[in-house]
Amino acid sequence: MLDRIKASLSSLAPAEQRVGRLVLSDPRAFASLPITELASRSHVSKPTVVRFCRSVGYDGLSDFKLKLAGSVSEGVPFIHRSVDVDDKTGDVLVKVIDNTVAAFLKYRNDASPLAIEKAVVALLAAYHTGKRIEFFGVGNSGIVAQDAQHKFFRLGIQSIAYSDGHMQVMSASLLGPGDCVVVISNSGRTRDLMDACDIARKNGATTIVVTATASPLAMAGHIHLAADHPEGYDRYSPMVSRLLHLMIIDILATCVALRIGPKLQPLLKEMKNNLRNKRYT
């Protein structure tokens, strides 16, 4: 959570930056002090303290302090450790699992319910009005996009996934107001995805980006779902990032399913019954 605040600091207004620096200087004290004292120590107004919390992706001061207290007191029990060429099988097993667990716990502490809620509302609006829902990603993120399309398809939601840059640009060119596109990227710096996101947004579609904080893509979408982790891009295949993105898609799909409500149950039951013949007894 503190890394996320540090990365976002330069993009905030000067007054909000002062609040951010106070958080970074003594997070434990920030989590326990009343808003009047926080405003006084930051030399800002009380509304500015609340605006800071919302600018970094939280519902307000209470939500921010709750997540901050959890992050500081609990922390993440594992430190990201790279897999080395001389690692034994047991070492690889422990490192991969520990890195994944650490990333999931960090996301639990850092995630913005407000941003997720905005994404869910946008997806539901597109669904209820019969507009298009699309998922874009390349490489490993392209696989996540396909998984997202599969999950939403099972909910009876017409959607499509594209992992080819040309198809993404062409499809983005056909999107319009009310349509929704989810752009998934580990680095947030892929040119094809940036181009497609810009085109979709220019045409009036709602753009949801699942990517790293402070990346170009993070600032290009309407709604940013931060997916931050310490995994580098230069060694082996991205592991933690893909699993983190899949979990975020699971959260979105679950929230959307719950909002659609009871009418989903007969559909899912019929689908399950129709698939019985595909399995050995």
Results as ranks from 00 to 15, higher is better:
residue 103 A to I: 04
residue 32 S to L: 15
residue 222 H to A: 10
residue 280 Y to R: 14
residue 74 E to F: 11
residue 24 L to R: 00
residue 100 T to V: 09
residue 45 S to Y: 08
residue 66 L to Q: 12
residue 86 D to T: 13
residue 89 T to E: 15
residue 119 A to H: 05
residue 76 V to M: 07
residue 52 F to Y: 08
residue 112 S to Q: 03
residue 143 I to E: 02
residue 260 I to S: 05
residue 267 L to F: 13
residue 271 M to C: 03
residue 109 N to W: 07
residue 127 Y to T: 08
residue 168 Q to S: 08
residue 220 A to C: 11
residue 175 L to N: 02
residue 53 C to F: 11
residue 104 F to G: 04
residue 154 R to I: 04
residue 16 E to N: 09
residue 128 H to C: 03
residue 130 G to V: 06
residue 62 S to Y: 07
residue 212 A to N: 07
residue 36 T to W: 01
residue 101 V to K: 11
residue 187 S to F: 00
residue 41 R to C: 08
residue 48 T to C: 12
residue 118 K to A: 14
residue 164 D to C: 02
residue 163 S to Y: 12
residue 156 G to F: 07
residue 221 G to C: 03
residue 185 S to V: 05
residue 109 N to R: 14
residue 228 D to F: 00
residue 189 R to D: 03
residue 16 E to Q: 13
residue 200 A to T: 06
residue 55 S to E: 11
residue 1 M to Y: 05
residue 35 I to S: 08
residue 78 F to D: 01
residue 234 D to R: 15
residue 2 L to P: 01
residue 169 V to W: 03
residue 204 G to E: 06
residue 243 L to M: 14
residue 124 L to Q: 09
residue 163 S to V: 00
residue 151 K to V: 05
residue 277 N to W: 12
residue 73 S to L: 10
residue 257 A to N: 04
residue 237 S to T: 15
residue 55 S to Y: 04
residue 66 L to I: 03
residue 52 F to L: 08
residue 140 N to D: 11
residue 59 D to Y: 03
residue 188 G to I: 07
residue 223 I to D: 01
residue 87 D to E: 09
residue 110 D to W: 06
residue 77 P to K: 13
residue 186 N to R: 12
residue 79 I to H: 10
residue 86 D to R: 15
residue 65 K to P: 00
residue 74 E to C: 10
residue 249 I to V: 15
residue 171 S to W: 06
residue 66 L to M: 10
residue 18 R to G: 01
residue 272 K to L: 15
residue 13 A to D: 13
residue 83 V to M: 11
residue 161 A to F: 09
residue 99 N to V: 06
residue 10 S to Q: 11
residue 89 T to G: 14
residue 116 I to C: 05
residue 218 A to T: 04
residue 22 L to I: 03
residue 248 I to P: 01
residue 132 R to Y: 09
residue 41 R to F: 09
residue 252 L to N: 07
residue 92 V to T: 13
residue 164 D to F: 02
residue 106 K to C: 10
residue 136 F to R: 04
residue 37 E to W: 05
residue 166 H to C: 08
residue 196 A to K: 00
residue 200 A to W: 06
residue 23 V to G: 04
residue 174 L to P: 02
residue 257 A to V: 02
residue 267 L to E: 07
residue 212 A to R: 12
residue 24 L to I: 01
residue 122 A to K: 06
residue 245 H to R: 03
residue 148 A to Q: 06
residue 268 L to E: 13
residue 51 R to C: 08
residue 47 P to H: 09
residue 218 A to D: 04
residue 251 I to N: 00
